[in-house]
Design a protein around this nucleic acid. Structure first.
Lengths: 144, 144
DNA sequence: ATTCATGCAAAGGCTTTGCATGCAA
DNA sequence: TTGCATGCAAAGCCTTTGCATGAAT
């Protein structure tokens, strides 16, 4: 297992570069993303946004997430049995371990697994476009 | 990568053992599962069921899949951007490669990856309850 | 001044559920 | 005969979308 780095994109710059408008709602939303190190869903982002600007709508959150995703600025994860959750792009590729009790997401990375995946796909005559590896588990109580 | 075996459960027996009724709709649905080697979603199962018995409802399909799942007789997979798809349990554990062009699902198994997953979880202080490994890819055109 | 983005409410896709009826045991 | 299972329709959850208004350029 390898370390997972995490550098945050300059969203406003990305928005300008994409030729879209840097509006108040978008500023609020990307501000939230910048300050987040977790994997919030749209509703959670909406709540955080409303705390800053009461006029923001949930639709705009969804639209903005979709926009950022299409720009490659964030990643969308559909973990089991819940709404999509988002995280900032820009860090290394990694996979996720989801704590079944808390919903917490722990990032990890294994070059060895990636390599094995490639081998498998190749053996089956496929080229991997992307993959999803999620471990669902519970914290081991080490002694209390 | 290892071979994936596939033996089918005797659903009616499982139903009886679970103490639930072996009704006409349930017979039709498990009959369809027995004859399937693909990964149909609820609507697809419903269509196949209606071809046999016009009176079956989609609700019953959903209810039956939920029942079978709770009995461990089938597995539910929520592949990207689509409805849940089901497959018979009873074969070896395996993971999935989804053909992005056709939606086809190819099963594979890698003990080595499983082992690495366990190591990762252990290193993070977690016990894996279950996991999900999906490769999304396209067939390599080998020469045309 | 334009045009794009927003808020709102409605709808859409998948799935579950309440209820009265029907069928398995 | 008794109660579980069914069909139907309605609702629920998450997400998208149509439309008129408002704001960024």
């Amino acid at each position: 297992m390898n370390a997972v780095s995490n550098r945050k994109p300059d969203y406003e710059r990305l928005l300008r570069k994409a030729g879209v408008r840097v509006t108040r709602p978008r500023k609020v939303i990307v501000g939230i993303l910048t300050q987040s190190d977790d994997h919030p869903d749209a509703l959670e982002i909406f709540k955080r946004a409303v705390a800053i600007d009461k006029t923001i709508s949930l639709s705009t959150v969804y639209r903005t997430m979709k926009l950022l995703e299409s720009m490659g600025a964030i990643h969308r994860h559909a973990f089991e049995g819940g709404p999509s959750r988002f995280e900032q792009a820009g860090g290394d590729h990694h996979d996720h371990l989801i704590d079944l009790d808390t919903g917490d997401v722990i990032e990890f990375k294994s070059d060895r697994i990636e390599q094995l995946q490639d081998e498998i796909a190749r053996a089956l005559g496929y080229e991997i476009i992307h993959h999803r590896l999620e471990l669902y588990g519970r914290k081991k109580k080490s002694s209390g």
